[in-house]
Amino acid sequence: MKLYDYILSPSCYKVRLMAALAGIKLDLRAVDFHPGLEHRGPDLLSLNPAGSIPILEDGDLVLTESSAMLAYIASLSAPEWLGRASAMETAREQQWLAFSSRLTATLGGARLHEMLLRPGDIAALQAGGVASLRELEAGLVEQRLAGQAFLVTDRPTIADIACFPYVALAPDGGVSLDPYPAIRLWSRAIRSLKGFIEMPGIHRLHELKPEPHLEQDEA
């Protein structure tokens, strides 16, 4: 399975993260998104006319939407990551997968503007980001009140992975996460999952491992 990837792209990271959690090895093909704008070049446009990354290739299958990639990876080797136990789970999963594109448009746009100098109306992007974060916070509060730690149910699903990266990286775009305690707990629960991997801007939770000590002969 080949992923056209950019280390700083939260959308690409969704796919790397899901693959790591599902135990699937990806063949990563680095795309010079910045500064080279390779995703807008003829080779990648012929693969994805939308000019976006990630792109996932598996045999004849070519996917250009990250939510579809998450569903594909989970269906192949981690079906427990799909919310399919009831009509309500299915619906909630679809709800948050669709919601995740609003995070990309707002928080993702603010991040590209503030970090990589891409054009955009920064005040509108940040205001949209705050509105999305408030909606997510309210949703997570209601889930907690129902005894569920994740967006769809009491276990993580692809909907959590679809929403997590742009939320965790909101401060890169000048949007603070300080006012959202439910998002903080949810984010921590995701970062504590076995097999979790980071991307630049999301630090390791050093507390998950006890403080390591040098062996005498190493010192």
Partner: peptide, 9 residues
Amino acid sequence: QMIFLQDRS
């Protein structure tokens, strides 16, 4: 870029 973006935050 990975190294520098780890420093940015």
